[in-house]
Amino acid sequence: MARRYDSRTTIFSPEGRLYQIEYAMEAISHAGTVIGVLAKDGVVLAAEKKVTGKLLDLSGAKEGGYGGSGEKIYLLNSNVIGGVAGYTADANSLVNYARTAAQRHLLNYNEDIPVELLAQRLCDMKQGYTQYGGLRPFGVSLLYAGYDPHYQFQLYHSDPSGNYSGWKATCIGANNGTAQSLLKQEYKDDIEVKDAIGLVLRIMSKTMDSTTLGSEKLEFAVLTLDSATKQPKAKIYKPAEIDALLQSEGLGKKDEDTEMKAA
């Protein structure tokens, strides 16, 4: 029965479902996990990279650019960081659209786009793809970690149907149920960024398949306020910085030499 209704996004099935959207969401639940936590003085994002391997050339992510390997975490505007789960190719086009929308707002109003407005702009586009034109919706969920003077720090989630919602802590991608329930247990309303970083990394290490965390499997970003200028400061960690952070949180790879000495 379903087969007659799932070849087009525009057609409801007799049970009132849009199969293509459900399939898109299914695709996302196999993608690399992205966790976002809203703290009192900032927002933390962490993402699991799925595309790895010895032969993959990651030298581009090591230096230059603004941090991030261009797979999971992107700078959408100076006040918003986006974390994506799903099809990277679809995500690229959405990230491009988000950056254009943010710059258009800057041009018209000479201010950084408010976070919820940016989420809305993307959701309007995503919703369009569930109704007109093409054959399939965007296979991407996003987390938006941002700051604006209206509501200070914010964390939003949007899915392929074009729904969006604000969160204190949330998770998308593989194992999101496990991470979600861990967040529910451990999240506190007055959490600070330094504790949120620890929380995110601990949950990440529990939900990921690999035993040890490392920069080749992880992307990480923090949005805070610059103490001098009071402007939002988006920091997307470079691989070396991620490894240093994991070391300081006691979650990094153990140095074999020191282990040998201890034994």
């Binding site: 018209n108 201010e111 408010p114 407005l117 003077p149």
Partner: peptide, 17 residues
């Protein structure tokens, strides 16, 4: 259309434009 009113600086920029 949007959730918030324009701030004075944003409104001024739009009017100037």
């Amino acid at each position: 259309r949007n959730i918030y009113a324009l701030r004075p600086s944003a409104a001024a920029s739009w009017i100037r434009r």
